[in-house]
Amino acid sequence: MSGRAQRDAAMIAAAIALLLCGAAPRRGLAADDPVAAGFAALERDRPREALAHFIAASRANPASARNLCYVGLGYFKAGDFENALEYFERSLQQDPSLVDSAFLFYRANCYRALGLRSMERTAWKALIDWDPRSRFADAGREAAASGRRERAPQSRALLERGLDVWHKLPHAAAAYFREAASQQESQWRTEARVFLACALNTIERHEEVLQLEPAPESDAALAGLMELQRAAALAGLERWDEAMAALQKRSFESVVRGQAEYLKSLCLIQLGRQEEATDALAALKRVFSTEAVAHLVTLAEVHMQHRALK
């Protein structure tokens, strides 16, 4: 081999070595990065494996809304649309800037798979409005057209399903209740509205609770529960005086009376009406010797300590 050929061979070897040096750390990064691993698993059509990676990423960084969104993607790919919707909604609540065409597309698809016709229509409309010329909007138009032939589930079934998932998936439950409340001809519309209020309070969307139509007074139990939820929403927004006024406006019936008294005590404490709060707490303590009341008593004592310091 001539000297020149030897030099060329050495240079080529050096070039390969340099390229490997440049590429090697990237491979290491992907291996250490659960999100990248999750997407890699999706590329290999292994949704369960991808979901496990995304969940690991979310656990490693619970504050990341994007990671929650990827967990939703993992559930979607795995065919678990309720969990997918829950995680999409949670991520959106945590960081509204996450919205893009793909996000809206997946959310609409979740509603579609769950049979939430009204919610699906709204979601496709939001997607088309977001970017009318995108490929996702085209898919949305097609889906909206095909969905018109689909019959929506009965309100009762929606309420049942919402209640089943409420404790673990409150966002998904709220979607079920909202869908049931949107069915105009349903006899369960009031119930759906009341339970939507409960679910919205659970996920801390208090403003939306205040926008809901009140329950008719003809059904005292539901009307009371709705009023209580409105008061709870006002309390959640720290509008304590309005919450107190709402609680005092009506006499709550049996099934929600204990809760109303509890919430009233909380409002009195927050409003600094210590004497009334002390009396209310004493009354509550006589009938409810529980952890929850103990919390209120502790809070009242804290406020009193605060006043003494002041």
């Binding site: 649309f81 065409s101 049979g115 589930p153 079920y176």
Partner: peptide, 20 residues
């Protein structure tokens, strides 16, 4: 991922509340 999914929509109402 979304682009590949956009080509095929999920079956409408594929998850249903069982009790009616």
């Amino acid at each position: 991922q979304a682009g590949s999914d956009a080509a095929s929509l999920v079956e409408p109402g594929s998850v249903r509340a069982a009790r009616t």
